[in-house]
Amino acid sequence: MILILIVLSVLGFALLNVFAKKTWQTALSLVLGAVFVISLVALMANLTYHFGMEKEVTSKTTELVSSGDSDRFDLLLYQPLGDGTEKVYLYKTDADQDEPKQTGTDKVTNVVETGADEAQLTADTTRWVYQSDVYRFLFGIADNEGEYVERTNTFSVPDSWAVLSVDQAKKLASLAEEQADTMKTEGQAYVQEKMQAALMADPTMDESEQQAKIAEYTAAYQAEAMQKLVEEAKK
């Protein structure tokens, strides 16, 4: 619509200036000239500064599964870019997914938060939209509604997850394979020692209670061993 106003105001201004013989015709030509200038300025302001528009943020939350292929580790992977200050995160939203998806690099900010109850990705995308139907009617021909501004990806993962680079994840898998036998032996010894202490503290513990304690101590050892492997993989 704004282009139509510009064209009509130019034509009207030109015609009235050529054929104007009366005062009202001259006045009308000045009004049309003002309409032309205002319309042109408004169009340029829309194209350059998004006049008549506002930023709208849409949010989408998706559950995550481990980015790695191992059943022993829950991982969120990233690939460093350049000097390492920028990272592309690799993530999976489905256990049957062959290859992980990756975050973009065009005006994208990635944030990782730990301590979550479950792993999930919240993507907040900002786009330009028109403030009202009037602005949309005037400037819709510019086809800039929904223009991308920026995106913030917030990865929320439990403390049991490790956030590693692709190279660190490969090192972790290698370390886990090398130390598998040692970890098994140490794990059995750890659980046995803990169970002996628990039985001394409560000799009346029944079978189900003992099994629950074994599961608890096994999980505790695995978490501790995992943390040590992760720290070594990061070196």
Rank of each mutant, 00 (worst) to 15 (best):
A201G: 08
Q210E: 06
E86H: 10
G52R: 02
E178G: 01
A27E: 05
E118M: 13
W128Q: 00
D202L: 10
L164R: 03
F19H: 10
W128I: 01
S67H: 03
K194D: 05
Y221N: 10
A201Q: 12
V157S: 02
A42N: 07
A119P: 01
V191W: 00
N153H: 03
R72Q: 13
S174E: 15
M205Y: 15
K235G: 08
K21H: 13
F19K: 09
S9A: 09
I141V: 13
T154H: 12
T85M: 10
A223S: 14
D117T: 07
M205D: 12
L76F: 03
M53W: 03
Q179N: 04
E86S: 15
E54R: 11
E224I: 11
N46A: 08
E207V: 14
E232L: 07
E207G: 03
D159A: 04
V157A: 00
L16V: 08
A197L: 13
G84C: 07
M1V: 03
D159C: 04
F19R: 09
P158N: 11
T85V: 11
Y91I: 13
L47C: 01
A27C: 06
E147M: 07
V129P: 10
S165C: 09
Y190D: 07
D71P: 00
E147F: 02
A95L: 14
D124C: 07
T218A: 08
A116W: 10
T105F: 07
A215K: 15
L172W: 08
Q179R: 02
A116V: 13
K101F: 12
Q97F: 13
Q179M: 01
I4C: 08
L40T: 14
K87Y: 05
L64H: 05
V129M: 09
M205S: 12
W128E: 00
N17P: 13
T125A: 08
D202V: 01
K21G: 12
F73K: 05
T109E: 12
D143L: 06
A123I: 09
V35M: 11
E178A: 07
Q188N: 13
V191C: 01
V88L: 05
N17K: 15
D133G: 14
A95F: 08
Q192W: 01
L15F: 15
V129L: 09
E63F: 14
S208Q: 15
Y49C: 06
K101I: 02
V111A: 06
A225D: 07
Q97L: 10
L47Q: 08
T182W: 12
K87Q: 15
Q131P: 02
D124F: 05
D71Y: 05
L164N: 02
G82C: 10
R72D: 13
E177N: 15
T85R: 12
E178D: 04
I141H: 05
M195T: 15
L76R: 01
